[in-house]
Nucleic acid binder design. Sequence first.
DNA 1: ACGCGATGGTTATACGTATAATCAGTTGAT
DNA 2: ATCAACTGATTATACGTATAACCATCGCGT
Lengths: 334, 334
Amino acid sequence: MNATPPTRPPTSLDVARLAGVSQATVSYVLNDRPGARVSDETRARVREAADRLGYVPHAGARTLRTGRSGLVLISMEDIPYGPLAVGTLEELDRELSRRGYTLVQYGARRLKGVPAARAWAELRPVAVLAGAGKLNRQAVEVLRSAGVKAVVALGSRPSPVVPSVVLDHEGIGVMAAEHLIDRGCRSLAAVVPAEDGLREMGEHRLAGVQRVARAREIPLTRVDLPFHEDGAAALAELWRRVDGVFAYNDDYAMLLMAVLGDAGLAVPGDVRIVGCDDLPLAALLRPRLTTIRLDVSATPSALVQRLEEIIAESPAVPSRIDPWTATLIVRESS
Amino acid sequence: MNATPPTRPPTSLDVARLAGVSQATVSYVLNDRPGARVSDETRARVREAADRLGYVPHAGARTLRTGRSGLVLISMEDIPYGPLAVGTLEELDRELSRRGYTLVQYGARRLKGVPAARAWAELRPVAVLAGAGKLNRQAVEVLRSAGVKAVVALGSRPSPVVPSVVLDHEGIGVMAAEHLIDRGCRSLAAVVPAEDGLREMGEHRLAGVQRVARAREIPLTRVDLPFHEDGAAALAELWRRVDGVFAYNDDYAMLLMAVLGDAGLAVPGDVRIVGCDDLPLAALLRPRLTTIRLDVSATPSALVQRLEEIIAESPAVPSRIDPWTATLIVRESS
DNA sequence: ACGCGATGGTTATACGTATAATCAGTTGAT
DNA sequence: ATCAACTGATTATACGTATAACCATCGCGT
């Protein structure tokens, strides 16, 4: 059954023997170490031997020897999966590997705080990007003492202890609320998704709406909504008491518009609605959906450059990176 | 600026010194090695010392010593991101870590074949799950010779060389086509998304439709569609020539329904439409959308168990795992 | 003839861990 | 009183790599 007998993977010493040189020479050649004096002929012999054996260096042994791993760890759980995040991640990967780093997504979803930090620290990465929620002071300390140069928080709010990539959900809520109030709304509602992965982001967007509503003295109703027809329909009376809704995103906005239509309420006549994400589909609805578009603001190259600065200085003080900008796109639903 | 001076991370030897024992004892205690005879008192002292120092084992050194890494690598690029995949991945992670493995998503998006395999092999993982497209025979050979026990392909078609997790897009196309023809359609169209991440899956779903259409002698038009209103509207005459469309997924189906409505065509009267994914939103449209729902068929625990079998036997012959089952949900649009 | 700087390598070592092999005490059986 | 068996540790080593330090050979100017 087994195609290959369980033979040991070839090492640099095996390559050396086949090429008739010392192991050190193999290392010098394959790493193209500047300053190493090896003849072109020997270089060729070594490369040839490595090829024939299918030699692949042992990353663990290398990090053990050098003390560095070039690994950049990112925990996925706080990343909102969508074309935006996936695309950015892909470019980030490309850019990092161009500079000799290796981007690796390491779940550890169930862990946070020190246990999560210990799991990451085992790999001796050079940088860790993780949700702000799992990077408390002690966790950062664990990473630091394991030699992690850059600890960067990802989250809706900047971390008080380390540099942060801030996904500014609060700003989205602010933008939506100000628009609705400017349009004349005097009683607002804001949707918070009931789904696990979305709720937290919903809370942060809500917080933005809240801030504006309070400042301009407009009543605000929080609506915890599961993504079902029933959930929204059950709140029929609520929709009669408000004249403006921030629906969290376009999907929920479309759900709401369907329900409101069934309930005999006119959009935007009775209720104004704002979504978020600028889904192509949202522009096709009647009325066309007002939404907030998010664009990546920093090029991956700039992001990685900033990361390298952080690696170099490994600052333990907060600073802020804003990876996207929000733009209001006014259509017909508001 | 630097919070901590660049001091070396603590090693098991540091722990040993603080606890007043040998390094070997530390290893025995912290790994709970059965058969190791260490008094409870010493155990406590070692644990205490490890805690105080914030000791975290060096995964690279451990891998070097033991020859195994417990790392399970999965390449993300061929995974269609959505609630289904993300949820499955999360449970997979949980289940694997329960058994002492570490799931890691390693991009290497830009690479395929041998170069990709070399990048993965450096980490000396115990298993690699990657898109069937990047696992040619030589790549598998590289992984094998680097000690990778289980090589598993992910893709729409089973790999001819290794066990595969088959995301059966073709089956989806078959299901949609048979339904439409059974409903009386005599001229079909199938949408293939023009977006990079989706096109390939679209082609496979199309292949399923094609097979059925050919067998039942029904003409079929392939429609390469970007996700814009314009894209679909530009094909206005096309929609008059067909009476059944498989729209690739619910998003495209909704796009189509909007466009067809504007063009004065009735659904399902003039054109029948089938989507896929069973989005909650799709059930709210008028007419309600007929769709295909995908459910994970194998529990993560069963999947991991199968993976462990593969690790144990490391077979180099194809076999097949079907991670989902498809169910047709007939509503009003067909 | 001699030293001397290149040239083209080699030898030796350390990184942190797991584990086989060994050893010093202590206990218990005869 | 003696030896075997057990307890609770220690010593020594190997894993694969990178790199500092060393060494042999050669060409060449004086």
